[in-house]
Write a protein that binds this DNA or RNA. Structure first.
Length: 641
RNA sequence: GCCAGCAUAGCUCAGUCGGUAGAGCAGCUCACUCGUAAUGAGCAGGUCAACGGUUCGAAUCCGUUUGCUGGCUCCA
């Protein structure tokens, strides 16, 4: 065994250490600041505890709370402390799993009595005590049998189940902190006193193993930090996020509403929301025409037979509204998707390879019977409009078509100000239709498109639909939750079921590729994302009202009217507010309505044919001629090219 | 659908121990005619989500239903 190891630090510099040195000692050798911040180390991509002797050479780094991995270790350790506190207070509780998540941690418990908010306070208090008492995390490798016996004795049936699933070659590791021992791969922070601030945030139900046939457990969510101020900042950010919530802003800016007596998940677009929607649709239609898409319009209902053929009645009934039956026996369903109708148009004549690709697009209203617990503002509804299109093409064309549609999608999302995407490639699941060769070719096309654009993406192995692989793009809402907007999905199911074909060069009938794609996803969901993204401060090209003309008093109402008329006839979405309220009141109201501009007119302006421009973002911009204001607002109000 | 919490005026929210409903904003009326984020006064506004139960008496306690919120599962 080597007596010396060579560690390559993140800056690329190699440093030699005696073999068996611990991460803690290395951190100390670098500096007291790092030693204090160090939580764990990573050697050749393997994370270990600070006090584990290091025997091998390789890439090395110290993990602190500044690293994502460091955060996860920190939060995971906090979840152990929480579990110990829960077991101390409620000894009849069984423990399941307690991982770190993107923002904090949770632990799942099995207990007959539900946890109450008061219980959370008690648990927090207990955790504080445990941390004050001093808790270190001790790692121990044990024999599988020993671990099973231990947890069986304690009645920890979930742990026993988990151990049973650890692959034969893998070590079984237990971590003990205080009175609490848990099955855990680790690593952990050296000492719980690092946890300077934490908060338990919510209680929720969660199925064991995420399977709704399994028992529902109680999940407690929490977050923790190495500094008190970080928790305060986090909680403040949470409050700010709530202020961006599209449901709140939707009400404040009079954009939309949803009514119990109309139906859950059914959206009314008020004028302010509908103006924005119109502008989105205008832009969308223009760009789609430019990209070679052909518009179609299709009905919102269709015969049962159609849905039988498409397969929806087989695999999608749970999400469909119940059938409508006529006296003559005709049965119709409201559509959950548009595809069968687009296919029907494709099938109205024999298609040649020369006709392909064919791109049919439609803002198609769809209705899906979503389970009651999943509805969520505009983000998850029962009636929505998909910005749908179907691409029919030859095998030779798919790569090109996928590249185009992926690039198109990024362009559209970016033009609405989105830059931070979660991109996912979902590949072939176990149960699926379609030939292996087609799956391969399609997945390959998707992967090539993704690679070519160079944006990072995650592969969801086996996560594709049973009918084809797909690319999904998700954007985050105010609370950091990801919502799918763009989806680009291959379909090997419906072309088969509807037997769609084209005649190739060789005169043979062949099966075209079919791709479903929505770029915005649904207008409802996209609108929600847009509201939260801009926090209601829509850019000029989308603002329902772009400018309000505010005469200082009644005396200048006539001049205000003439300015308003000029703005409107220049195509600017202007409003006049000459109500007999104080000037301060009317300015404040326009500000809270997040209207991008005001033109304030009084004696000075009336005498010089000018207006005083005030911006929502920058305040008073001073007086300028009406022509200048029109030019300025028109330029800024142009939709994306 | 499942777990937990919540539901009072158009909005945001008070309402103690069960004793019969309250504020601010918004709305309406009047006065004020105003220079860059709230002028003042007055008026009106409620089957306390719905239904059932306990009680002399229920916004308040209990049950059911509906809706919403946070999760789970599912998904645009």
């Amino acid at each position: 065994m080597a007596t010396e190891i060579e560690l390559i630090f993140p800056d690329g510099n190699p440093v030699f250490y005696p073999a068996g040195i611990t991460g803690k000692e290395i951190a100390e050798s670098i500096g007291p600041g790092l030693a204090k911040a160090a939580l764990a180390v990573e050697i050749n991509g393997e994370k270990t505890d600070l006090d584990t002797p290091i025997a091998e050479s390789g890439d090395f780094r110290v993990l602190t709370f500044d690293d994502d991995e460091g955060k996860r270790i920190f939060w995971h350790s906090t979840s152990h402390i929480m579990a110990e506190a829960v077991r101390a207070l409620f000894p009849d509780t069984k423990i399941a799993i307690g991982p770190a998540i993107d923002q904090g941690f949770y632990y799942d418990f099995d207990r007959d009595e539900p946890f109450t908010p008061d219980d959370l306070d008690a648990i927090e208090k207990k955790m504080t005590e445990l941390i004050a008492e001093g808790r270190v995390f001790e790692r121990r490798e044990v024999k599988r049998k020993e671990a099973i016996e231990r947890f069986e004795k304690e009645g920890e049936i979930y742990k026993v189940e988990l151990i049973g699933e650890i692959p034969a070659g893998e070590k079984v590791i237990l971590y003990t902190s205080g009175e609490f021992t848990d099955l855990c791969r680790g690593p952990h922070i050296p000492d719980a006193s690092r946890i300077k601030a934490f908060k338990l945030l919510s209680i929720a139900g969660a199925y064991w193993r995420g399977d709704e046939n399994e028992k529902m457990l109680q999940r407690i969510y929490g977050i923790s930090f190495p500094k008190r101020s970080m928790l305060d900042d986090y909680l403040e950010k949470l409050e700010e996020a709530k202020a961006r919530d599209h449901r709140k802003i939707g009400k404040e800016l009079d954009l939309f509403s949803i009514h119990e007596d109309i139906g859950p998940g059914l959206v009314l677009w008020h004028p302010n929301g509908a103006i924005i929607r119109d502008l989105i649709e205008d832009y969308w239609r223009r760009r789609h025409r430019q990209e070679g898409y052909l518009p179609v319009y299709t009905p919102h209902v269709g015969r049962a037979q159609l849905w039988e053929t498409s397969g929806h009645l087989g695999f999608y009934t749970e999400n469909m509204y119940p059938p409508m039956e006529f006296e003559d026996g005709g049965i119709y369903y409201v559509r959950p998707m548009n595809c069968p109708f687009h296919i029907a148009i494709y099938k109205t004549r024999i298609r040649s390879y020369r006709d392909l690709p064919i791109l049919y697009s439609e803002m198609g209203a769809d209705y899906r019977y979503e389970r009651s617990g999943v509805l969520h503002g505009l983000l998850r509804v029962r009636g929505f409009t998909m910005d749908d299109a179907h691409i029919f093409c030859t095998p030779e064309q798919i790569l090109d078509e996928v590249m185009k549609v992926y690039g198109f999608s990024l362009e559209i999302l970016r033009s609405f100000g989105f830059e931070d995407f979660g991109i996912y490639l979902s590949t072939k699941p176990e149960k699926c239709v379609g030939e292996a060769e087609r799956w391969e070719q399609a997945t390959d096309a998707l992967r090539q498109a993704l690679d070519k654009m160079g944006l990072p993406y995650k592969v969801d192995k086996g996560g594709g639909a049973f009918y084809g692989p797909k690319i999904d793009i998700k954007v985050k809402d105010a609370l950091g939750r990801e919502w799918q907007t763009t989806t680009i999905q291959f379909d090997f199911n419906e072309p088969e079921r509807f037997d769609i074909t084209y005649i190739d060069e060789d005169g043979q009938k062949k099966r075209p590729y079919m791709v479903h794609r929505a770029l915005l996803g649904s207008l409802e969901r996209f609108f929600a994302c847009l509201i939260e993204h801009y926090a209601g401060n829509f850019p000029m090209w989308l603002a329902p009202t772009q400018v309000v003309v505010v005469p200082v008093s009644d005396k200048f109402s006539d001049y205000g009217k003439s300015v308003h008329k000029k703005l409107v006839s220049s195509g600017i979405r202007a409003r006049l507010d000459d109500r007999p309220e104080t000037i301060g009141y009317r300015i404040r109201e326009a500000e809270t309505a997040k209207i991008p501009y005001m033109v304030i007119v009084g004696e000075r302006e009336a005498n010089s044919d000018t207006g005083s421009l005030r911006s929502h973002a920058h305040g008073d911009l001073g007086s300028m001629s009406i022509e200048e204001i029109i030019t300025r607002l028109t330029d800024e109000g142009k939709p994306p090219a």
